[in-house]
Amino acid sequence: MESEQIIFYILSFWFVTSSLLMIFSRNAAKAVLFLVLVFFSAASIWILLEAEFLAITLILVYVGAVMVLFLFVIKMLNIDKSTLRAKFTGYLPLGLVVAAIVAAEMSLVLGANQFGLDVFSSPTRHDAGYSNITVLAMQLYTTYVYPFELAAVLLLTAIIAAITLVHRNDTSHKKQSISEQVNVQAKDRVRLVSITLPSKEDK
């Protein structure tokens, strides 16, 4: 067995093991940490497949931003563990049956007869001067430039949607309302009361 196969099987073992630990862990924070391990294994597999840029992106964006967001939400919400795990095993048999059927069907399609080495031979490795980032950037900024800009708009929409959903008007402290200050009129501030002075004859 050559080294590439050994590395592949070690990485696959950790990939599968950490994802199993993730779905069966009772603590949501632990599940997030196992998902981080899943992402690291996936990134290693992608580096084995010469997709260096995506592997680094997966670690930087997912482990660095998305998983930290998950951890923040879990710590902020203070979830009651006992209610969440009440029906832990209730649907496990059904889930296993469905997953087994899906796995069996996909194995029939994706087996070595269709996608083995004799059908898809392993491509030769690129030399040291090959830059995955350059190749991806050439594609991304020429052929796929409009989808790229659409992705930027999508992220902007996500930012606005997330802020709009969670933001609430805080009434716990005093703050300025600039528009009210600018639009103020004299009659809002000073009320002139006409007073009729009592005449001297009334005394």
Binding site: L92, V98, A99
Partner: peptide
Amino acid sequence: NVIFCIGLVGIFV
């Protein structure tokens, strides 16, 4: 394929 099915079981569990 295996990872996909593990995710599927996770949704059920």
